[in-house]
Design a protein around this nucleic acid. Structure first.
Lengths: 125, 125
DNA sequence: GTGAGTAGTTACCCAAAGGTAAGCGCTTAC
DNA sequence: GTAAGCGCTTACCTTTGGGTAACTACTCAC
């Protein structure tokens, strides 16, 4: 009987694909703030200071960088309204909305996870 | 008419909650490799070198660190089988499997995203 | 003209993430 | 006995992430 090497089962190909997909997704969505930022703007368009207030903890520098990055990747758009003084509004694009399912699953999981962490904290004492 | 400040609409509370959930989820799932690593082990238990081979690009150092981290957070378990020589198998726990929906959504999105990126590359030339 | 707000930018700095390369202690295969 | 595989660890280094604080340029309100 011969051992077959380097020829994955068809089943394994699917697994490898989903692994690749996840890696590709993480490549653009990496970082501490990106997904939260997208979620915040999908919920409603906001100005710079509003975002900074909502994601308490993010610094102006990092927020500016992340916003540029997300704009480059077509997740958000920066709109300048010629009021006096000008209003600068960041909006989520349609492409951001393709993340809707990802975000709602992640939110649901995050909530469940918080409960679990709290419980295991209680057990310790 | 008075402007009400710092008293969000009930609707906004929900939004803030899902934002908080996502932030909490990202806190444990951060990093370049964590979700991919979990997915790989949910698909099948593996040994150290098998994982390193599957996630090509990850270094031994980082893999060892991530595995320890995931074990601490109850996502995987490290089993030592007393064969000669001993076999060390990493397995996903039940808790990893609670990420099933997150992972499948992320995989679906990653696949879609790759197609979109390829298309926009083509348009450039 | 002074202070406050808006939307950032810049310089400086620290810490964490993550890669490379070498090595260790073990065992099996040749 | 020598090489190769396994499961790491260690030392070293670079990159990045991200924080602070000061500053700009503009406008409005007092």
């Amino acid at each position: 009987m011969k051992v077959i090497k380097n020829e994955p089962l068809p089943n394994k190909v699917e697994c490898a694909n989903s692994l690749k997909n996840v890696l590709d997704a993480l490549y653009v969505l990496n970082g501490k703030w990106k997904l939260a930022l997208i979620l915040s703007l999908v919920q409603s368009s906001k100005r710079f200071n509003e975002i900074q207030h909502e994601l308490s903890g993010i610094s102006a520098k990092v927020l500016a960088k992340e916003l540029k990055d997300l704009e480059l990747n077509d997740f958000i758009s920066r709109k300048v309204y010629l009021t006096t003084p000008v209003s600068i509004i960041y909006e989520a694009t349609g492409y951001s909305r393709t993340l809707k399912n990802v975000l709602s699953e992640l939110s649901a999981w995050g909530e469940m996870h918080r409960v679990k962490v709290k419980q295991s904290m209680r057990k310790q004492f």
